[in-house]
Nucleic acid binder design. Structure first.
Length: 571
DNA sequence: CGGTGAACGTA
DNA sequence: CGTACGTTCACCGA
C-alpha cells in the first residue's frame, strides 16, 4: 500500500500531492489525471486528506478515489470529539492545548488571553509554539501565492501526511479494531462527498403532484399563497364555532381551541391527540392539517426549488458522523422526507434502485457488542425474536417489546416480567446494557464496538456533543449510544463495501438512511447489483465481527429489492 | 436580532 | 413507551 497526501486549495482548485517518494502539484484537470494514473498502477494507493470534504472539487470533476485516510474522522474516533478542524487534529497528535492556538480571523473577538500568534517565519507553516498558523488553517496562506508558487500547498499536504501517519500509529497501538474503524469511517466520509455530488433522483412531475395535494398548487403570488393557507386553516377552524381566530401554529392557542371542543390536554402533540381521534372531529382534522402544513412549509414548493437541481436530483450536505454516537446525517430533507413523498423519489429512465435495509439490526448488534453466546445463537435465525420468545416461553410480540425495552432503557409499559426472563436467559447481554447505563449515569465515557469513544458528560473543550443533564437520561443515552453507534459502524462498513464492489456496474449510492441504502444503477445491471449488495453485507459483517473475534457467531440479514420508486419498498 | 422550546418528519 | 438528527415556527428578551 502506498500512501499519498493530497490538498486542494480554494478557490483556485490548485492541488498538491505529497509522499516520501513523490511530490507533485497542478490544476484540477492535471491532478485528476495524475490521481487516475496512480490508482491504475500496480500498488494500491491510500489518499491522506485533512478532511474528505477537501476532495469535493476533484470529486465534482468526476474523480473516483478508492481508499482514503480522513484525518478529521480519525480524530473524532480517537477523541470522541466533534470539532475536528486541522488545528484541533494537529494539536491532538502533537499534545498541544487547543486553547493556546492562534486565533482565526473571526474567532474570539473578546479573547485577550495569551495566544501564540506569529508564525516563526513567513514561509513557516507553524508558530514558535508548534501550532499551525491561523492563515494556513483558513487556507489563505497557501492560496495567496498560487499558482506560481505551490510550495506552501505542498507543505500543507505534507503536514496532513504527517498527521495521518501519527494517527495511524496511535490507533494501531490501541489494536486493530480502531484502525479498521478509522479506515471505514474515512470511506464513509468520502461516500458523503459522492452523495453530495450524485444527489437523490426525483421524479419532478410526481413530486409536484404530491406537493399540490398537501400544499395546494404552486402559488402565483404571495396573496395566492396566503389565501390557500387561510383555506387550509379553515378546514380545522370551522369545526369549532367561536374559535375561528385561533392561530393553529401557536400550541397554546390550539390548546384553547381544543378546550372549547371539550378536550383538555397537557400538550397538543400528535401522540397525545391520537387518543382523542374519535372524541371530536376537530382532532383528526387538526392532525391532517399538521401533516399538510409540514409538507407545505418544509417540503413544499420552496424546498423543491431550492434543493432539487435542474437535473432532478435532491441535494444536501452529508456528514459521516453526528455528534453523539456516530451516525450519518443529511440536510434538506434527505433524512426526514415524509413517507407520503416517497413515490416522488424515482430512478431515472433506464435505471433502477437497488434498495436494501438491515433487518433487526439493533438486537443483532447487541449480540456482537456483548458477546453473549446465547443471544448470538438467536441471531442465526432469520427472525431473531422467534428463538428469544421460545426461550422465554412468551409470545413473539412480548419478546420483541422486552428486547427493545432492555436496549432503550424503557421505564413505562408492561415489559417487566419478560425483562426478568431476559436477564436469566441472556445475562451477559443484559449486564452489558445495565453496566453501560450505570457508566453513563456517572458521567463516564463508553465505547462502541469499533472503538469510538462516546462521552456522556461535558468536557473542557467547546463544540462537544451536548449530553443530557440528569443521571437517568445520561444512562439511557449511553445505553443507546453503544447500540446505535456500533450499528452505524457496521452500516458504514457495509456501504463502503457496496461502493467498492458495485462501481464497475455504474452504480451510485444515492441515499444512506441509518440502516437502509438506495443504490441507483443502470437497469441491465440491477439484478447483479442486488446480489452484490447482499454479498457486501456478509463480507463487511465478517470483517467487522472479526475485529473482536465474533466472526462466526453473529448473523446479519438484509432485505434487498429492485424497485423503480422508493415507495415500492416493502412496508 | 439571536436563542429557545414545541412540534414533527426520519431511523 | 427509548435514543438520535434536521427544519420550521412562535415566543422571549435584548
Amino acid at each position: 500500500m502506498r500512501t499519498v497526501a493530497l490538498s486542494v486549495s480554494l478557490p483556485s482548485g490548485y492541488t498538491a500531492l505529497w509522499s516520501p517518494e513523490h511530490v507533485a502539484s497542478g490544476g484540477l484537470t492535471e491532478v485528476a489525471g495524475l490521481v487516475r494514473e496512480l490508482q491504475a498502477g500496480p500498488v494500491p494507493v491510500r489518499w491522506v486528506v485533512w478532511s474528505a470534504g477537501d476532495l469535493r472539487p476533484l470529486v465534482e470533476a468526476g474523480v473516483r478515489f478508492e481508499r482514503l485516510w480522513d484525518c478529521a474522522e480519525a480524530h473524532r474516533l480517537r477523541e470522541g470529539s466533534w470539532r475536528a478542524g486541522p488545528q484541533e487534529v494537529w494539536c491532538a497528535v502533537h499534545d498541544l492545548d487547543p486553547e493556546g492556538a492562534p486565533a482565526g480571523p473571526r474567532d474570539d473577538l473578546f479573547d485577550f488571553g495569551e495566544r501564540d500568534d506569529t508564525p516563526a517565519a513567513p514561509e513557516s507553516l507553524t508558530t514558535p509554539g508548534g501550532y499551525l498558523r491561523a492563515d494556513a488553517v483558513a487556507g489563505r496562506w497557501q492560496e495567496a501565492v498560487l499558482p506560481h508558487d505551490p510550495t506552501r500547498l505542498v507543505q500543507w499536504a505534507r503536514a496532513a501526511f504527517d498527521v495521518g501517519a501519527r494517527q495511524q500509529e496511535a490507533l494501531a497501538t490501541r489494536g486493530p479494531t480502531e484502525l479498521a474503524t478509522a479506515f471505514s469511517e474515512s470511506a464513509a466520509s468520502l461516500l458523503c462527498v459522492e452523495l453530495e455530488r450524485f444527489g437523490l433522483p426525483i421524479d419532478r412531475a410526481t413530486m409536484s403532484d404530491l406537493i399540490t395535494t398537501s400544499a395546494g398548487p404552486r402559488p402565483a403570488s404571495l396573496q395566492a399563497e396566503l389565501e390557500h393557507r387561510a383555506a387550509r386553516d379553515a378546514t380545522v377552524l370551522r369545526l369549532v364555532p367561536g374559535q375561528e381566530r385561533t392561530d393553529l401554529r401557536n400550541p397554546a392557542q390550539v390548546r384553547e381551541l381544543l378546550l372549547a371542543a371539550g378536550i383538555d390536554v397537557p400538550n397538543t402533540r400528535k401522540w397525545t391527540l391520537e387518543a382523542f381521534r374519535d372524541t371530536h372531529p376537530v382532532v383528526p382534522a387538526l392532525l391532517a392539517w399538521r401533516a399538510d402544513e409540514r409538507i407545505a412549509t418544509t417540503y413544499g414548493w420552496r424546498w423543491l426549488d431550492a434543493h432539487v437541481g435542474a437535473d432532478d436530483r435532491l441535494r444536501g450536505r452529508w456528514s459521516a458522523c453526528d455528534g453523539a454516537a456516530g451516525r450519518m446525517t443529511a440536510e434538506n430533507g434527505l433524512h426526514n422526507l415524509p413517507a407520503a413523498l416517497r413515490p416522488g423519489v424515482a430512478a431515472a429512465p433506464g435505471h433502477r434502485f437497488v434498495r436494501a435495509d438491515l433487518g433487526q439490526i439493533e438486537p443483532r448488534v447487541l449480540a456482537a457488542v456483548s458477546g453473549d453466546e446465547a443471544f448470538m445463537a438467536a441471531t442465526r435465525a432469520q427472525d431473531l425474536y422467534a428463538p428469544v420468545a421460545e426461550r422465554l416461553g412468551v409470545e413473539r410480540s412480548v419478546a420483541k417489546v422486552a428486547v427493545l425495552a432492555a436496549m432503550y432503557g424503557q421505564r413505562s409499559g408492561t415489559a417487566g416480567e419478560a425483562l426478568a426472563g431476559l436477564r436469566r436467559a441472556y445475562p451477559i447481554a443484559m449486564r452489558l446494557l445495565e453496566e453501560t447505563a450505570e457508566r453513563g449515569s456517572r458521567g463516564e465515557s463508553v465505547t462502541t464496538f469499533g472503538g469510538r469513544a462516546v462521552h456522556t458528560a461535558p468536557r473542557a473543550e467547546r463544540g462537544m456533543q451536548a449530553p443530557p443533564p440528569v443521571a437517568a437520561a445520561r444512562g439511557r443515552f449511553a445505553r443507546n449510544a453503544i447500540i446505535q453507534g456500533s450499528a452505524a459502524e457496521l452500516f458504514k462498513a457495509w456501504a463502503a463495501t457496496i461502493r467498492a464492489t458495485t462501481a464497475d456496474l455504474g452504480a451510485e449510492i444515492v441515499l444512506c438512511l441509518h440502516d437502509e441504502v438506495l443504490v441507483h444503477v443502470p437497469e441491465e445491471a440491477a439484478q447483479e447489483c442486488a446480489q452484490r449488495v447482499d454479498q457486501a453485507l456478509h463480507d463487511a459483517a465478517r470483517r467487522w465481527l472479526a475485529l473482536r473475534g465474533r466472526d462466526e457467531g453473529v448473523r446479519f440479514v438484509a432485505d434487498v429489492s429492485v424497485i423503480g420508486r422508493w415507495s415500492e419498498a416493502k412496508g
